[in-house]
Simulated assay, not measured.
Amino acid sequence: MSDKTLTPRPSNLSREQFVSQYGDIYEHSPWVAEIAWDQGLSEKEDTPSGLAEVLGAVLNAAGPERQLEVIRAHPDLAGKAAIAGELTDDSTREQAGAGLDQCSPEELARFERLNQAYKDQFGFPFVIAVKGKDRYDILEAFKTRLKNSADEERRTAIEQINQIARFRLQGRVER
């Protein structure tokens, strides 16, 4: 994780500016940034790793229902929203980076079956930080995680979402 400074510096922003700049780090969940700002930001949070720690702590401290809202805000991997071009810019880049935009019709059908089996079992979409993974790694992770309990899988999904947030913040200093 880079220790470069985020621009604009989170600790120098008003609440409105901070939420405008960083409220999209968690998919359709600006409340995470709102709470982080409300708790107070220092220069430690002006780096991707520092801000990721604070934002992750907010999500980790949220109750299970609030965490489920964040999980449910994520799209299916290689799902209908991706095919229709309805993903957020971050999700589109992330899924393309893992090659999910290059799936064969058979692979897309497999993703669709696994996405549905996962949602049937847990009541929320499968979420994984795809950076550094390819579609085969992701398909394997589906099989492994389908063996988890609901609580275990909620915690795993939150860990993955926090990892996605770290990658997104890192990407902001690398652009």
Score class of each variant (00 low, 15 high):
residue 3 D to T: 14
residue 5 T to C: 08
residue 7 T to R: 09
residue 8 P to V: 05
residue 15 R to M: 13
residue 15 R to A: 14
residue 17 Q to H: 08
residue 18 F to L: 14
residue 23 G to K: 02
residue 24 D to L: 00
residue 25 I to W: 07
residue 29 S to I: 06
residue 30 P to L: 00
residue 31 W to D: 06
residue 41 L to S: 10
residue 42 S to K: 02
residue 44 K to C: 01
residue 46 D to F: 08
residue 47 T to D: 11
residue 48 P to T: 12
residue 50 G to T: 11
residue 51 L to H: 06
residue 56 G to D: 07
residue 58 V to M: 07
residue 59 L to D: 01
residue 61 A to I: 00
residue 61 A to M: 04
residue 62 A to V: 01
residue 65 E to V: 11
residue 66 R to L: 09
residue 69 E to I: 03
residue 71 I to A: 04
residue 73 A to K: 04
residue 75 P to T: 04
residue 75 P to Q: 05
residue 79 G to K: 11
residue 83 I to T: 15
residue 83 I to R: 08
residue 86 E to C: 10
residue 88 T to Y: 10
residue 89 D to C: 01
residue 95 Q to E: 13
residue 100 L to S: 01
residue 101 D to M: 00
residue 112 E to D: 15
residue 114 L to R: 07
residue 115 N to C: 07
residue 116 Q to R: 15
residue 118 Y to K: 07
residue 125 P to N: 04
residue 126 F to V: 05
residue 129 A to P: 02
residue 130 V to R: 03
residue 133 K to F: 12
residue 134 D to W: 04
residue 134 D to H: 13
residue 134 D to F: 03
residue 134 D to P: 00
residue 135 R to P: 00
residue 135 R to G: 01
residue 135 R to L: 15
residue 148 N to G: 05
residue 149 S to I: 06
residue 152 E to Y: 08
residue 152 E to I: 09
residue 153 E to F: 09
residue 155 R to F: 08
residue 156 T to Y: 09
residue 159 E to G: 15
residue 159 E to D: 15
residue 159 E to Y: 02
residue 162 N to W: 11
residue 162 N to F: 08
residue 165 A to K: 00
residue 166 R to Q: 13
residue 167 F to P: 00
residue 167 F to A: 01
residue 168 R to F: 06
residue 168 R to V: 05
residue 169 L to E: 07
residue 170 Q to I: 11
residue 170 Q to R: 10
residue 175 R to Y: 00
residue 175 R to W: 05
